[in-house]
């Protein structure tokens, strides 16, 4: 038996749309630039980020002191601001990537478990999510770091601990709706086990909205890490981090504006580009929100 010609139907595949084109391009390039700076920091940075130079303190951008060119100026200990910014990108991105991955994984697992198993698992997990989401996350993070002590690892752990409920909520809602789809039902009728259904049939179908959450969270995590460092609860000196640089720069705003301005600008650019990318991702994956915004 052969199929009739009208059985063949051409269907547009959603992922073929060229969402990255035109308006998003500059922001994608900015983000990519930060990523490259972070990865290759030691190769790109002109000087060692932690080397002090007492003769070159608080020099403005472009100053040359004993053969050392401070492209973006120097800080209160005579360290090259550009080099510290580049190494600071490393801290910001690493903290954000790790905490997003950790909280994303934990939140997704718990949310999927709640949405698929229902019953008491659902009740317990979602109540905890509600509690977490009702406490301001920054406050929670500050308190926890204050208890655990500062440092990069603790910052990542704390960010993951405070942010997993957002993924859990999205994963939960998505799992609820996908679990009732006929294809998940068919998988059960094929004898697929719980894990196979969750990871082969449900997860790929809910990963889109989770990616959007992760992208928007990423920007937030960059800011959180900076805030914690700003308060002295993050990465400890002398390691470079944008938040800590801002914090120090605050004392010199009138005399050496560049110390606070450049890390601030970097933060702004990075978070802005990540958020815009996240927004366009959401529009891409959720046509409803796009029409809403165009109206």
């Amino acid at each position: 038996m052969s199929a009739l010609p009208h059985e063949a139907v051409a269907v547009e595949r959603p992922f073929r749309r060229r969402w990255w084109a035109a308006p998003m391009l500059p922001f994608i390039l900015i983000f990519a630039a930060f990523v490259l700076l972070a990865i290759f920091a030691p190769l790109i940075a002109p000087y060692e980020p932690n080397v002090q130079n007492l003769l070159g303190r608080l020099k403005p951008p472009g100053a040359v002191v004993r053969g050392v060119t401070y492209v973006l100026g120097s800080d209160e200990l005579g360290r090259d601001l550009l080099s510290r910014l580049i190494h600071g990108a490393r801290m910001s991105l690493a903290a954000a990537v790790l905490s997003v991955m950790l909280s994303g994984a934990v939140g997704t697992m718990l949310g999927m478990a709640a949405g698929y198993a229902r019953g008491w698992v659902e009740a317990v997990v979602m109540r905890i999510v509600d509690v977490f989401l009702s406490v301001p996350a920054v406050l929670l993070a500050i308190i926890t770091v204050a208890v655990l002590g500062p440092g990069f690892t603790n910052v990542v752990l704390v960010l993951a601990l405070t942010r997993w409920p957002r993924y859990a909520r999205v994963a939960y809602g998505q799992t609820l709706s996908v679990a009732n789809m006929p294809y998940v039902r068919l998988a059960r009728f094929m004898g697929a086990g719980r894990l196979r259904i969750l990871f082969v049939h449900i997860l790929p179908n809910i990963i889109g909205p989770l990616t959007v959450v992760a992208t928007l969270e990423f920007g937030l995590m960059v800011l959180f890490e900076a805030s914690l460092s700003f308060l002295g609860l993050g990465v400890q000196p002398p390691t470079a981090s944008w938040g800590a640089m801002l914090s120090v720069g605050r004392n010199y705003v009138s005399s050496a504006w560049w110390i606070a301005t450049f890390p601030g600008a970097c933060l702004f650019l990075l978070v802005l580009s990540v958020n815009l990318i996240g927004d366009s991702l959401r529009d891409l994956l959720d046509p409803k929100s796009r029409t809403r915004r165009k109206e």
Binding site: M181, P182, L186, M190, G191, A192
Partner: peptide
């Protein structure tokens, strides 16, 4: 036994298939 010695098919053929598989 399910899906091996006995199998079941449904009414909604399109939505009964995993859209990403």
């Amino acid at each position: 036994v399910r899906g091996d010695s006995m199998a079941m098919i449904f009414q909604e053929p399109v939505s009964s298939l995993n859209p990403l598989m």
